[in-house]
């Protein structure tokens, strides 16, 4: 494991912790898209189908369990927790799941490395993760007052993706036969979706102003 990969995983972990902190401690999910969280739960459920059959490392299994457990518990909190649910911006979070899930499923059935159930599900999870942030970005744009934790959460998610690209570049030059077009293109698309957000995030940071995305 190289430093970029580890930093990427830790940034991903930090993003989840920031979100759990907001939800568990502050008991608020204001500005957080339930749609995006449900899509992430689906991403991990379909990607980690081999969690108990294909052992890679202790680190790998633990991280998978954390991402599975946290994504489903976040969805549970927003939907079922009495106090947290009250802060959910239901009327603003209007993105339709199917507009995202169906195209990803069709694409995974058409473009994959092997036509087996597990492989198609794994590819589907890559395509889905690439666009799962869209409902969250739309909600951010509609939110007039983006609080610090929500801004940090999205920033950490974007940073995690950028670090994974550096990890792929590093692995490409240091390992033999390390070419994964599907993973790379999906990952690149996913990172590009954050470009706009990054721009305004750094602007607000530089000017010491509140983060606000233009409508």
């Amino acid at each position: 494991m190289n430093i970029f990969r580890l930093a990427g995983d830790m940034t991903h972990l930090a993003s989840v912790l920031v979100l759990l902190l907001k939800i568990h401690t502050i008991k608020s999910c204001a500005g957080i898209s339930l749609k995006t969280q449900e899509l992430y739960a689906l991403v991990f459920a379909t990607r980690y189908l081999d969690i108990f059959t294909n052992y890679i490392s202790f680190y790998n299994t633990i991280m998978k369990l954390i991402f599975l457990g946290s994504s489903f518990s976040i969805v549970w909190y927003i939907k079922r927790h009495k106090i947290v649910h009250r802060s959910y911006d239901k009327d603003q979070d209007t993105f339709r799941h199917w507009f995202i899930v169906l195209p990803c499923l069709v694409l995974a059935l058409l473009i994959n490395e092997r036509f087996t159930f597990k492989e198609v599900m794994w590819t589907f999870s890559l395509y889905l993760e690439a666009v799962a942030i869209l409902p969250q970005l739309v909600l951010l744009q509609r939110t007039r007052n983006i609080d610090n934790l929500t801004g940090q959460y999205v920033f950490l998610l974007g940073a995690y993706r950028a670090l994974y690209i550096l990890n792929w570049i590093y692995r490409y030059f240091t390992e033999d036969h390390y070419i994964h077009w599907i993973t790379w293109i999906a990952g690149l698309v996913q990172t590009l979706l954050y470009a706009d957000f990054f721009y305004y995030y750094f602007q607000s940071w530089k000017n010491n102003a509140k983060l606000e995305l233009p409508a």
């Binding site: 294909n54 991280m63 092997r114 492989e119 794994w122 390992e175 036969h177 994964h180 993973t183």
Partner: peptide, 10 residues
């Protein structure tokens, strides 16, 4: 599918 090195990523 499990023989691919990319599968060690999360």
């Amino acid at each position: 599918s499990s023989d691919k090195d990319v599968k060690d990523e999360l």
